[in-house]
């Protein structure tokens, strides 16, 4: 990697008077001034009233989603908790007697799911690692709270914010398959 020294072209007398630079500057600034004042071409967005259109694929705050039947998709596998670089996610597991899932056959659902939005860096690792498509980075970018506690979002809040995700209902399909196989000779429980 050799450095190529580019010769500066010598300035003419006219250029050395700084006049062309001054006139050029005047031209550019005057054009922008006129644009703003007379044509109203200002780039400023009046933030609280005007809102930015969040593009698709934007990585905002991660929220939990429900499936079409209103069931929690998360099965408390804790992969997101494991992968989260700033350790913002904290899952309380359901425990041994934990058939707390609000849909059949998935057996498991987090007892509590907390995301500390102060810690979250919106990297999207949780979304990427989630095998159940239960957590998504959504479009919220302005998250505020009055104290640190209010910035820790619990499962209820995350589910409410997350909304419904229209995806494959893996566990429901499994359940229906099992129900269809009436021929299975051993009584299930």
């Amino acid at each position: 990697m050799s450095t190529k020294v580019v010769d500066r072209p010598p300035l003419t007398f006219y250029e050395r008077t700084y006049l062309p630079a001054i006139l050029g500057g005047l031209k550019v600034t005057a054009k922008h001034f006129a644009d703003t004042v007379f044509k109203g071409n200002s780039v400023t967005m009046q933030y609280p009233e005007e809102r930015w259109v969040v593009p698709e694929g934007y990585r905002g705050a991660p929220y939990l989603v429900k499936d079409q039947d209103g069931a929690t998709k998360c099965v408390s596998c804790q992969l997101c908790e494991f992968v989260c670089p700033p350790k913002a996610i904290r899952i309380t597991t359901p425990g041994a007697d934990g058939l707390t899932a609000d849909r059949k056959n998935a057996e498991k659902m987090p007892k509590e799911f907390e995301i500390n939005m102060l810690r979250c860096i919106f990297c999207g690792m949780c979304q990427e690692v989630c095998p159940e498509e239960a957590i998504f980075l959504q479009k919220d970018y302005s998250i505020t709270g009055e104290n640190r506690e209010s910035m820790i979002f619990n499962k209820e809040k995350l589910l409410k914010l997350g909304g419904t995700h229209a995806g494959v209902q893996k566990w429901k399909n499994k359940l229906e398959e099992a129900q269809a196989q009436e021929t299975f000779p051993v009584d299930a429980q």
Partner: peptide, 10 residues
């Protein structure tokens, strides 16, 4: 104000 206008701001 003038700075803002020159820079296409408000």
């Amino acid at each position: 104000k003038v700075s803002a206008w020159i820079q296409n701001r408000v």
